[in-house]
Design a protein around this nucleic acid. Structure first.
Length: 274
DNA sequence: ATAGGCGCCTGCTGGC
DNA sequence: TGCCAGCAGGCGCCTA
């Protein structure tokens, strides 16, 4: 569930609590996540100091003082929070990292277990994992020529293209629908049919929607909370996503919902043309 | 190579 | 009240 704005909010929340802190202890649950936790990591983590926390697309990369990275993906239902040691341990908590500040823990909770928590050996290994063709550029760094080229090179729908992390990193189902609404483009339109003007409008819309969502600390629908356990507020500003049957905020036409690229897709049949 | 479908999980909601 | 289908911020693997 968490997309770029939610992950960015988590990272910003965690930084002041984690940077400079040392890891005192590690405890993991028996349930496996998308990738199995290696027992060796329980030995490697204690004593390490947190130097940096970065976001890349929907990935959270915590740089440690041995040049390794604790890498976390929130999947659909992941929560990464800093809480007092005494806070009750909620069901589905899979990793608990004790901190040396004498009273708090970093906890990774993930109800559906589509998420991931792994220790990566080095910056080079992280490159292989995330970059090397897998993750496209950050939405804020999209070059107009690149973006149009990638869109026009595919027969898939704009919706499918936006969800493809290789084209642009960090956009998911909510912000794809919201960006297409903002740009007044039909989600079903084939990438190959995209004019230069369409592509650029879409690019700007993505940036505007994501920045606004970050300002509102992301969207909370069911599970999402930021690094301090607070919900987001952007769900109150949705114009298309999840508004099936409600009037379009631009033209009052009821918002429609279709299945596209395997996902629920919400749009205004009138002002998002065709 | 590219595009679509399915499965991985748990929990919640709505209809009967 | 119970049961069952359908749905949910993602992604990787399989197939045509």
């Amino acid at each position: 569930m968490p997309e770029l704005p939610e992950v960015e909010t988590v990272v910003r929340d965690l930084r002041p609590h984690l940077i400079g802190r040392r890891i005192a202890s590690v405890k993991v649950s028996r349930h496996h996540l998308r990738q199995r936790w290696q027992p060796a990591w329980n030995q490697l983590l204690p004593g390490r100091q947190v130097l940096e926390i970065r976001r890349r697309g929907k990935w959270i990369c915590t740089l440690l003082d041995d040049a390794r990275f604790l890498v976390i993906h929130l999947g659909m239902s992941g929560q990464l929070t800093v809480v007092p040691n005494a806070a009750p341990i909620q069901k589905h908590t899979h990793v608990i990292v004790g901190l040396d500040d004498g009273g708090r823990q970093l906890r990774f909770r993930d109800i559906r277990r589509f998420g991931l928590a792994v220790l990566v050996e080095s910056a080079a290994a992280l490159e292989v994992m995330l970059d090397s063709g897998k993750l496209g550029p950050e939405p804020f760094d999209l070059k107009p020529a690149y973006w149009r080229k990638r869109l026009t090179a595919t027969q898939r729908s704009l919706k499918a293209a936006l969800l493809d992390q290789r084209l642009v990193a960090g956009v998911g189902n909510i912000y794809a629908d919201e960006s297409l609404f903002e740009a007044r483009l039909p989600p079903t339109q084939r990438g190959s049919q995209t004019s230069a003007a369409d592509a650029d409008r879409l690019r700007r819309s993505i940036v505007r929607v994501l920045n606004r969502a970050i300002e509102r600390r992301g969207s909370s629908i069911q599970n999402y909370v930021g690094g301090e356990g607070l919900q987001g507020e952007y769900q109150n500003e949705f114009r298309a996503y999840g508004r099936t049957g409600e009037p379009c905020p631009r033209c009052e036409t009821p918002i429609e919902r279709i299945r596209l690229a395997g996902r629920s897709t919400h749009y205004c049949p009138r002002c998002q043309g065709q």
